[in-house]
């Protein structure tokens, strides 16, 4: 409404406006599948966005799994070289035996699964 009032004020001083408007006027264009094409592109973009994050996480995770497992193995080797008294003290303190601790590969796989799950949840929210 406000726009129409401003428009009218613009036009009052413009004697040629009706003629120019008639010259510039054109018939409404039939849709002929235009909206369908646009919406197909929009939906494609939505799906690409949804899939990008999980795909990146899976690819990144699969690339990182080898060096990450190497790091974990190296750390366990460092842990093994520590004096037995020190490790016994740590185990006594926590009240756990070494055999009851989860294997390094289990921790790594759980981490990757957790990351992928988080990514999927975020993608679904988006």
């Amino acid at each position: 409404m406000k726009s129409k009032i401003i428009n009218m004020a613009d036009r009052l001083k413009d004697k040629q406006a009706p003629g120019l408007e008639a010259m510039f006027r054109s018939d409404p264009l039939p849709d002929l599948g235009f909206s369908k094409k646009v919406m197909a592109r929009v939906r494609r973009q939505v799906w690409i966005r949804r899939l990008t994050m999980p795909a990146a996480l899976i690819i990144g995770g699969s690339i990182a799994i080898k060096p990450a497992s190497d790091i974990v193995i190296a750390m366990t080797q460092v842990f093994d070289t520590l004096p037995p008294k020190l490790t016994d003290a740590a185990v006594d303190f926590s009240g756990l035996s070494v055999s009851s601790l989860p294997h390094s590969a289990t921790i790594l796989v759980s981490g990757v699964i957790a990351l992928v799950a988080l990514g999927l949840v975020r993608a679904l929210e988006d």
């Binding site: 510039f24 054109s26 409404p28 264009l29 849709d31 235009f34 909206s35 646009v38 919406m39 929009v42 939906r43 939505v46």
Partner: peptide, 21 residues
Amino acid sequence: TKAFGELVRRHQSQIRNFLRK
């Protein structure tokens, strides 16, 4: 997307006419 589809249908003619000219 449904609401946006309705907006596309409603305004496609004006946008296409503007860009055609």
